[in-house]
């Protein structure tokens, strides 16, 4: 039977190996990360503990196992505030204008669509960004914002709606002050506070279905989804979003996606190192 946890020595050996292999430097607080990410590889290779796994890697001249370690340690899992810049764009560029519209009464409610919400990190990150903005701009309130989070997987939606995350999941990109402000801890589990949950409505939605029933939006987040689609389907989706957005509404996609040659309904804008798109349809 395997050891229940990685020992301090085993962690140090693997930490140094990981740094040599892919340049990722891990602090002592990242023990859980090594354990969580590498445990499936231990099992796959029949290793009884992390020491045996280290010895196997050290004695194996082939690159396959090392590649798997690099992959396991670097593949992005769902992160809080993934890529950072979409949320700085939201905070610095989009929310100030929308807040001014709310204050002047030219808008009464802001609607944001997180179109592939997976296990909830993106819509809750949007909700935290709005909450933080409202803390420093008391003229607007979180209840003036509505976030619709959709996903094709009912089970992913179930997990997202629960809003419960273990220690490893909560640590991926979430600054501790925000964790402590918007989550509460029960044992190993961190749960999203009701003030954030109230802002987000979860709903099953297939991007192949007609979007009109979802209503109008001021901002749409559609990230790391279109990369898997054909150009024809991308045109259909971005065209649908353009018609769904309020005049001068905004679309946020990932840095690995592009509208070039796909849609002419949007103008690309930049903020810092990040891009976002403004709808040109009236």
């Amino acid at each position: 039977m395997m050891a229940d946890a990685i020992s301090a020595t085993e962690f140090r050996l693997l930490r140094d190996l990981i740094e040599r292999l892919c340049g990722i430097a891990l602090g002592d607080e990242k023990t859980y990360l090594v354990e969580t990410r590498l445990a499936p590889l231990l099992a796959e290779n029949g290793c009884q503990d992390f020491g045996a796994f280290y010895r196997l890697v050290s004695s194996d001249p082939s690159p396959q196992l090392r590649d798997k370690i690099v992959d396991a340690m670097t593949t992005n899992e769902t992160l809080w505030f993934r890529d950072t810049h979409p949320f700085s764009i939201l905070r610095d560029r989009l929310l100030p204008q929308l807040a001014a519209d709310l204050s002047q009464g030219s808008r009464f409610r802001i609607r944001i669509w997180s179109a592939a919400s997976s296990t909830g990190q993106e819509p809750y990150s949007i909700a935290m960004t709005i909450h933080e903005f409202c803390r420093s701009n008391p003229a607007v309130r979180p209840d003036q914002f509505e976030i619709l989070a959709t996903d094709i997987s009912p089970s992913a939606l179930f997990v997202a709606k629960l809003g419960r995350y273990d220690q490893a999941a909560i640590a991926r990109g979430l600054p501790e002050p925000l964790r402590d402000r918007y989550f509460h801890q029960e044992g190993h589990v961190w749960t999203v506070n009701d003030e954030l949950k109230r802002m987000v409505t979860f709903r099953k939605f297939n991007l192949q279905d007609p979007m009109e029933a979802l209503g109008r939006f001021d901002i749409v987040f559609l990230r790391y989804v279109a990369i898997y689609f054909s150009d024809g389907f991308k045109r259909q989706i971005y065209g649908g979003i353009a018609r769904l957005l309020a005049p001068e509404g905004h679309l946020i996609i990932s840095a690995v996606e592009s509208l070039r040659g796909i849609s002419e309904d949007f103008q690309q804008l930049t903020h810092g190192s990040g891009s976002y798109y403004q709808c040109q349809l009236s």
């Binding site: 990410r37 499936p40 798997k68 396991a72 997987s153 089970s155 992913a156 490893a168 999941a169």
Partner: peptide, 21 residues
Amino acid sequence: CKPFQADDLTVKIAESLGEGF
């Protein structure tokens, strides 16, 4: 299939439990 991402494990278990359906 191992190795898997933690999110995939969570969603697959929820799916197998019939949660969300």
